Simulated assay, not measured.
Amino acid sequence: MAVRDRDRFSTATRIRALGEQTAARVYRSQTKRQARRSRLTGRAALLVMVICSLVVVLAYPIRQYVAQRAEIAELQREKEQARQRVEDLRDLKARWQDDAYAEQQIRQRLHYVMPGETGYIVVDPGAAEQSRTGLGAAGRPWYRTLWDGVDKADAADADAAVLSHP
């Protein structure tokens, strides 16, 4: 027994025992860390799944919200343009109520003159040449341009009739 007691208190034995204890402690801490890591990894995976689910669930409503906000902004812009157009038309109507403005416009647009005045119309020489030859602005007779317009209108009506009847 004396050898055993002496062995127990020897430096080599103590160092070996300390090494074994330290190795056991390191092993236990690594297992705890690994267990903690695996738990955090599972939590992280769950968190990622929840976030992905929220993104998928909220993507469509958010897209709809943004589209509706854009549509609202467009409608407000159109409303403002319509309001401005109404104001312009009211101003024009008020101007036409003024006799002096109406007289001025009649003189300009219809080439009317007051009794006792002499009216003059200045003719462009190029336009006078075209009217003398009977050709319109496109270099063709006026009746040809008129007839082409009738043909185009007739073709449009025929296309509309074909589209409306199955």
Rank of each mutant, 00 (worst) to 15 (best):
E80I: 02
Y120C: 03
D159L: 09
D148Q: 12
E71R: 09
Y27R: 04
V48P: 08
A70K: 01
G126V: 15
R14C: 07
G42M: 04
D151C: 08
A2T: 04
E103L: 09
A24F: 08
A155M: 14
L58W: 03
R77Y: 05
I121G: 05
L135Q: 04
F9W: 06
S38I: 04
D88C: 14
A73H: 05
E129C: 06
T22N: 13
L89H: 01
R6L: 10
V48Y: 08
H111Y: 05
T31M: 08
A128K: 06
D88S: 12
G19I: 10
I72D: 01
D157H: 15
D124C: 09
L46I: 06
R39H: 15
L18N: 13
V86W: 10
R77H: 04
A67S: 15
V123F: 13
H165E: 12
D148G: 04
E117K: 06
V50T: 00
D91S: 07
S29L: 13
K152V: 10
L40V: 04
Q64T: 03
Q81P: 04
P125K: 04
E87L: 13
Y112K: 02
R140N: 06
G119L: 11
M114G: 15
E103M: 10
A155I: 07
Q84T: 08
G149P: 00
K93R: 13
R132K: 04
Y65F: 15
R83M: 14
A12E: 02
A24K: 12
E20M: 09
A17M: 10
R43I: 03
A59F: 02
T13N: 13
Y143Q: 14
R36E: 08
L110W: 05
R36T: 08
T133S: 07
A128P: 03
Y143F: 14
V162L: 08
D7S: 12
V48M: 09
R63H: 06
A100E: 09
R43F: 07
R109M: 07
E74R: 02
V55N: 11
T31N: 12
P61N: 12
L46K: 14
R63M: 00
L54E: 11
Q64P: 03
I121F: 08
R107T: 02
D154P: 05
S10N: 11
R83T: 15
E74G: 00
V55P: 01
I72Y: 04
R33G: 06
T22L: 12
E80A: 14
A161D: 05
I51D: 07
V55R: 05
A12I: 02
R16K: 03
S164T: 10
A23H: 12
V57I: 05
D88W: 15
R28A: 13
R77G: 01
Y60S: 07
V26G: 00
R144M: 10
A35V: 00
R14D: 03
L146S: 09
W147L: 11
P141R: 15
A35G: 05
R144V: 13
E87W: 03
D99H: 11
A127Q: 11
K93N: 12
Q21D: 14
I62Q: 12
S29T: 13
L92R: 02
R8V: 00
M1W: 07
D98F: 07
V122D: 00
A156Y: 09
Q104S: 10
V113Y: 07
L47R: 08
R8C: 03
L135F: 02
A82L: 14
S29Y: 14
P115Y: 00
F9E: 11
V86G: 00
T11Y: 10
S10M: 01
A82C: 08
